[in-house]
Amino acid sequence: MEILMAFVIGILFMTATYLMLSKSLLRIIVGTGLLSHGAHLLILTMGGLKRGAAPILGGNAESYTDPLPQALILTAIVISFGVTAFFLVLAYRAYQELGTDNIEEMRGTEKDD
């Protein structure tokens, strides 16, 4: 399973990178979304998959899966939500002000501000 996941993660990273290198602002944001999915799965996979029960004490489980990656990912999910939202609004405002979502057209030099 870990091997399969490694390739899934690789593909997620690949598509994310390709999207982020494009010119459209929205695609860049979608790319960051994919990138964070990839990163979360990567952390989870590194900790080992499906070993033992869910990390909640009380059952009669002999072993538990590693709780630490899960805690880290939980933090990461929420943070990436905040960042995505921020980025999205930034794009939205840029769109309104500049009338474009093409980052090459947004490119500014010091002279024009």
């Binding site: 490694a6 390709y18 290198l21």
Partner: peptide, 24 residues
């Protein structure tokens, strides 16, 4: 389609896959 972008993203994907495999 842009070749440089594609090459870079394939590179990133490959490196991440390698890391995931090796880390495991």
């Amino acid at each position: 389609f842009k070749l440089t972008n594609a090459l870079i993203s394939i590179g990133v994907g490959a490196v991440v896959t390698l890391i995931a495999l090796s880390a495991h």
